[in-house]
């Protein structure tokens, strides 16, 4: 992963997904990954989203309200696993 950007309204109960996703990154993740977070005002009705950019240039924009934290982790892991496998096959 090279870039993560999220936006959420913390006063919506469904923003939990995006917030938990951010809290899962390890302490030193920000040295490698560029993270941008946008906190929406209380009255906004915009849906929260998680946008991820990978090393190979693939971009994912996931709807955090529909997927839930398990769904988002699954989607992100699926691609990063395949990237890892390609890396290993190349002998890195």
């Amino acid at each position: 992963m090279t870039e993560v950007s999220t936006a959420f309204n913390p006063f919506s109960p469904r923003a939990k997904t995006a917030r938990l996703f951010l809290s899962f990154f390890p302490a030193d993740a920000r040295q490698r990954i560029k993270m941008t977070t946008k906190i929406l005002p209380r009255a906004s009705k915009d849906r929260s989203f998680v946008q991820v950019k990978f090393n190979d240039g693939k971009e994912m924009k996931l709807d955090a309200e529909k997927l839930g934290i398990k769904g988002i982790i699954e989607e992100v892991d699926r691609h990063s696993r395949s990237l890892n496998r390609a890396n290993e096959l190349n002998g890195n």
């Binding site: 913390p10 006063f11 919506s12 923003a15 939990k16 938990l20 809290s23």
Partner: peptide, 13 residues
Amino acid sequence: RTAHGLSPLLSGP
């Protein structure tokens, strides 16, 4: 349980 305005904020770290 969900009545207070601050309650949606109270999750996660």
